[in-house]
């Protein structure tokens, strides 16, 4: 395994760069960061819309989430690649398509996780807060969401980590991220697929593990500071 790393690390790290487009782990990280950055706020909005008392809003978002969750990401990426340019009338890169598809997909999943958190908070709390004269939004912001988000942090961490791993599906539209690079290496080394995939597993593990550990540490800290642990 070490030999593979020694020989092919530039390809795994940056792809064809600087002789071609940036790829490999660098691209995986960029896609993942963009995916997380856009999907989190979007998912909060969707979750709030889903539990909101406004009927049509919760209906529309519920249907949206339902359809997105029903389509395999692989298919969603594939369709986005060919449909998005038709909708906006100009061609977009595979990279942009992948980020868009990931954001929409992850937002739908995260929204479900957050909704579950909101619904797990006893309804008495909302009633208490409202009866004290707080508005609906204030109740959500100050009473419900802080508890709900904290309660579902482990599930949210799962989703974040999934986002990183799911960037690997970019290969269907030829985004030459880490898995794509690993396939190229595999094609060169040929007879050691287990080792190549071993290297791939270790790299993903390191990236994902550091993320989930940092979030767990954050979770502990918040709980401790609130004396909940």
């Amino acid at each position: 395994m070490l030999e593979i790393v020694r020989e092919y690390w530039p390809m795994l790290l940056v792809g064809q760069y600087p002789n071609g487009p940036l790829g490999g782990l660098a691209l995986t990280l960029i896609v993942a960061v963009l995916g997380l950055a856009f999907s989190l706020p979007l998912s909060l909005l969707i979750a709030l819309a889903r539990v909101s008392p406004v009927k049509w809003l919760s209906f529309v978002t519920a249907q949206f989430v339902r359809v997105i969750r029903g389509i395999p990401l692989l298919m969603l990426i594939f369709w986005a690649y060919f449909v998005v340019p038709k909708l906006i009338g100009s061609s977009v890169s595979g990279f942009t398509t992948l980020v868009c598809a990931l954001v929409v997909y992850q937002a739908a999943y995260l929204a479900e996780v957050i909704r579950a958190g909101i619904e797990a908070i006893p309804s008495g709390q909302i009633e208490a807060s409202r009866s004290m004269g707080s508005s609906y939004m204030l109740t959500m912001r100050k009473v419900i969401l802080p508890q709900a988000l904290l309660n579902v942090l482990p599930s949210m961490t799962n989703q974040f980590v999934s986002t990183i791993k799911e960037t690997s599906l970019g290969y269907v539209i030829s985004v030459n991220e880490l898995t794509f690079s690993a396939n190229q290496v595999n094609n060169l080394v040929l007879t050691q697929p287990l080792q190549v995939f071993g290297v791939l597993a270790v790299v993903y593990f390191i990236v994902c593990f550091s993320l989930s550990r940092s979030l767990r540490w954050l979770d502990m800290r918040i709980r401790r500071s609130r004396a909940m642990a």
């Binding site: 791993k165 898995t179 597993a201 994902c208 593990f209």
Partner: peptide, 19 residues
């Protein structure tokens, strides 16, 4: 849990089939 959460499913499947 950490192993399964942090290693892509594809790699995990290949491991079970080939390893």
């Amino acid at each position: 849990v950490e192993y399964h959460r942090n290693v892509p499913l594809l790699v995990h499947v290949l491991f079970w089939y080939f390893g």
